[in-house]
Computed example of a mutant assay.
Amino acid sequence: MTKVTMTVNGKTVSADTEGRTLLSSFLRDGLGMTGTHIGCDTSQCGACLVHVDGKAVKSCSVFAQEVAGAQVRTIEGMANADGSLSVIQQAFQDHHGLQCGFCTPGMVMSAAALLAENPKPTEHEVRHYLEGNLCRCTGYHNIVKAVLAASGQDVSGLGVAAE
Rank of each mutant, 00 (worst) to 15 (best):
79 A>S: 12
94 D>A: 01
105 P>H: 00
99 Q>I: 01
97 G>H: 04
136 R>N: 08
93 Q>P: 03
117 E>H: 03
97 G>L: 08
28 R>P: 00
127 R>T: 13
71 Q>K: 11
5 T>D: 05
103 C>A: 03
36 T>P: 07
77 G>Y: 03
45 C>G: 00
48 C>M: 13
24 S>P: 00
59 S>A: 15
41 D>M: 07
7 T>P: 05
160 V>H: 15
135 C>P: 02
45 C>I: 01
43 S>C: 07
27 L>Y: 02
152 G>F: 07
113 A>L: 10
6 M>L: 15
102 F>N: 01
67 V>W: 06
106 G>A: 09
7 T>N: 13
46 G>P: 15
138 T>R: 12
118 N>M: 13
66 E>P: 01
125 E>I: 10
65 Q>T: 15
113 A>E: 12
29 D>R: 15
14 S>V: 09
46 G>R: 12
8 V>D: 11
128 H>Q: 15
124 H>T: 06
107 M>F: 15
154 D>L: 06
20 R>V: 09
143 I>V: 14
159 G>R: 13
118 N>I: 11
58 K>A: 12
142 N>G: 04
120 K>D: 12
66 E>W: 11
31 L>K: 06
46 G>Y: 06
98 L>I: 04
132 G>A: 09
87 V>Y: 03
45 C>M: 00
157 G>N: 14
52 V>Q: 05
41 D>Y: 04
151 S>T: 01
5 T>E: 13
118 N>A: 05
109 M>I: 11
79 A>Y: 06
29 D>C: 10
111 A>Y: 00
21 T>D: 03
161 A>R: 14
145 K>G: 10
117 E>N: 06
115 L>P: 07
98 L>N: 04
46 G>A: 13
88 I>K: 01
1 M>G: 15
48 C>A: 13
152 G>K: 08
95 H>N: 13
27 L>T: 02
1 M>T: 14
71 Q>C: 00
149 A>F: 05
114 L>M: 11
58 K>F: 08
47 A>G: 07
73 R>N: 14
29 D>A: 14
42 T>G: 07
161 A>G: 15
38 I>A: 02
122 T>N: 09
121 P>C: 11
41 D>C: 09
140 Y>V: 05
156 S>P: 11
43 S>R: 12
136 R>L: 01
17 T>P: 02
124 H>G: 01
112 A>E: 15
159 G>W: 06
7 T>A: 13
6 M>K: 14
80 N>Y: 07
127 R>F: 10
163 E>S: 14
90 Q>Y: 00
71 Q>G: 01
76 E>W: 09
5 T>L: 04
97 G>Q: 09
39 G>M: 00
145 K>Y: 05
138 T>L: 05
150 A>C: 03
129 Y>R: 09
150 A>Y: 04
19 G>D: 13
150 A>H: 07
119 P>Q: 11
19 G>E: 14
109 M>A: 04
137 C>I: 04
138 T>P: 07
22 L>C: 06
22 L>W: 12
101 G>R: 04
50 V>F: 04
80 N>E: 15
47 A>I: 11
112 A>S: 12
77 G>M: 04
87 V>S: 10
156 S>V: 04
94 D>C: 00
91 A>Y: 07
86 S>I: 02
28 R>I: 08
140 Y>G: 08
13 V>S: 08
